[in-house]
């Protein structure tokens, strides 16, 4: 049973994989052990709306086509690069791709997409809170950072390949549908950002960590926040 669940790739001696798992575990532990309280209207995106959604977000990223490319290349070395010299892949190594065990979960990407879309509004709500926490409108550097974060994550989520399929990719014929022209236009625009899905995936990941560090710095008392504009009612 366990043999079926765990594909051969995971049973190989793989330092990179161990490091990755340790990194993930440490990061998760740190997030749980050292939660960031709300600081002057700033809510850390890792805790929005609650840290309990983190597994879904994590799975969305783990099953994402962009990250799949990266960890299949750099962690599992299937293959390590496109050059055919010095590849570490060969027939002696077990390989089942996405057909067996827990890798099958990669086929469920769209459900994690649904959960990611469900979480998205909270980032905008957080942005709103950060600007009105005093009761009147205050625009601070932190809000701009939160706004950037929200936009990057939105772009990342909506540039998803599963989303592309859902909004029209699964259809052979646009003109046969009601409003086919508009659907095609949406599909085409989405395809444009889809082409940058990998960049967006990494940009949004790096940025969310940056936001987390930024808020932690503020909590620690480092004065790096500035008021840009304030409207006193």
């Amino acid at each position: 049973m366990l043999n079926k669940l765990i594909p051969k790739e995971l049973l190989e001696k793989n330092i990179r994989l161990y490091m990755f798992i340790i990194l993930l575990a440490v990061a998760a532990l740190m997030l749980v052990l050292f939660p960031v309280p709300e600081y002057k209207g700033y809510i850390d995106p890792f805790y929005s709306p609650t840290i309990l959604v983190l597994p879904f977000v994590g799975l969305y990223r783990l099953t994402c086509y962009a990250y799949r490319k990266d960890y299949n290349r750099h962690i599992f070395k299937h293959p390590i690069a496109c050059s055919v010299i010095g590849r570490l892949d060969d027939n002696k190594r077990g390989y089942t791709g996405e057909t067996s065990g827990i890798f099958k979960i990669e086929n469920l990407h769209r459900y994690f997409l649904y959960s990611a879309i469900a979480i998205l509004p909270f980032f905008y709500y957080d942005l709103y809170i950060s600007m009105f926490y005093t009761g009147s409108f205050v625009l601070r550097l932190g809000s701009l950072i939160l706004a950037t974060n929200a936009v990057l994550i939105t772009l990342y989520v909506f540039s998803c390949h599963s989303f592309r399929s859902l909004i029209g990719g699964r259809k052979d014929c646009f003109s046969c549908m009601h409003g086919g022209k508009s659907i095609k236009r949406v599909y085409d625009s989405q395809s444009k950002i889809n082409a940058h899905h990998e960049t967006l995936a990494w940009a949004s990941l790096i940025f969310i960590i940056f936001v987390d560090l930024y808020i932690r710095a503020l909590v620690a008392g480092i004065p790096i926040d500035h008021i840009i504009f304030a409207l006193v009612l």
Binding site: R68, K69, H78, C82, Y95, G97, E98, T99
Partner: peptide, 15 residues
């Protein structure tokens, strides 16, 4: 036809 064996490493696209 084993579509699931593709792990989207995109080398085909690159070459």
């Amino acid at each position: 036809k084993g579509l699931g064996y593709c792990n989207v490493t995109k080398c085909c696209q690159e070459v």
